[in-house]
Design a binder for these strands. Sequence first.
DNA 1: GGGAAAACTGAATATCTATTCATTAGGTTA
DNA 2: TAACCTAATGAATAGATATTCAGTTTTCCC
Lengths: 196, 196
Amino acid sequence: MSSTRKAAKRERILDAAVLEIARHGYYGTTVSTIARRAGVADGTIYLYFKNKEDVLVSIFERAMQRFIGEAQRIVDDGGGAEEKLRKIVTLHLSLLGENRDLAVIFQVEFRHTVHVLELLSRSRIRDYLALIARVVQQGKDEGVFRPEADALLAAKVIFGVLDEMGTDWVLSRKNTRLGSRADPVSDLLLGGVRVP
Amino acid sequence: MSSTRKAAKRERILDAAVLEIARHGYYGTTVSTIARRAGVADGTIYLYFKNKEDVLVSIFERAMQRFIGEAQRIVDDGGGAEEKLRKIVTLHLSLLGENRDLAVIFQVEFRHTVHVLELLSRSRIRDYLALIARVVQQGKDEGVFRPEADALLAAKVIFGVLDEMGTDWVLSRKNTRLGSRADPVSDLLLGGVRVP
DNA sequence: GGGAAAACTGAATATCTATTCATTAGGTTA
DNA sequence: TAACCTAATGAATAGATATTCAGTTTTCCC
């Protein structure tokens, strides 16, 4: 079997898993269900993944690669710190907002055990945090951000806000666009709530 | 059996469940394990709770009652909006920081089961958000917070930051005090990152 | 102290599901 | 076409565990 056909089947299994896990949760989804939706036999799953958990991990890896890749590009491209921060906020909310099933998995399912979080997601998240922190540092260097702000703490604050926005959107069934909240969120993050 | 003794045994079961679930996760914890740690038989659990999930729900209810109760008191007591907000930040981080096991359950375990607990947990969270939003509104009325800030959105931002601080602390094994981060977090939230 | 009721016990049950592997199908080369 | 190799199948397995309930112990009150 050609490697592209093989990769395509792997993708199909991952897509099926995203759909099922988003709807029924990781523990509420059986390997059989994923297999049926992907149009393969149960055993086939184990030709492409080590076990059930590996499927979840692979969903995370695939999504995170895109996430960090695009954020990296924003940071590498020129521009002021404030502009970059606004772009990252928009990117984060848009990527989640584009695929609700994936968003559910990110905001809900990945939290389920310290195990999964600890092992991989946190190291990737740390990369992401470091990326944001670098933008904050740039802002401090440029003199547009408060010099007394701790860059990493500020990055965590920013990530926390984006994360909560994601969870809130996932759990409220409303048909709002998550990406449309980017501007007011950026305003709050950049301006703070206190009158200057 | 007297109702106080009965309540005490219920508490003991809940305490045991907090400890086990924090260490092994909800799905990694068996009813037998909880029973053993609480010093009762498996069947006894079912005299006090409808089923395993009900134990988790009860952990949430018990903790949230204390959480909202204390926050409510802060809001009811007099004082300026900024002072109240600082107190809420301190309260949130301190309560989590005092009991790491409970913090793990709040920051990690409840996320997975949000699926199941959606109705319950989100309605309580909404109460908490409304409470913070009222403080923001007070700040706007007093003229110390930006008038264009949406109170509920700001509340979500604030909650998101506190939540991420909690998760970050839970997942980093370091021996820092979570409560000690209250001031810098409040500063960032109140002042924002941009130079005024 | 005795008898009824309430509380408790823990082994048995009933069910569920991740994973394996003997077998079949499909494709490639000589 | 035949021989060979890779991929896929899905029924069987093995292990786990939430919940029940018939029997036992404790508590309560007269």
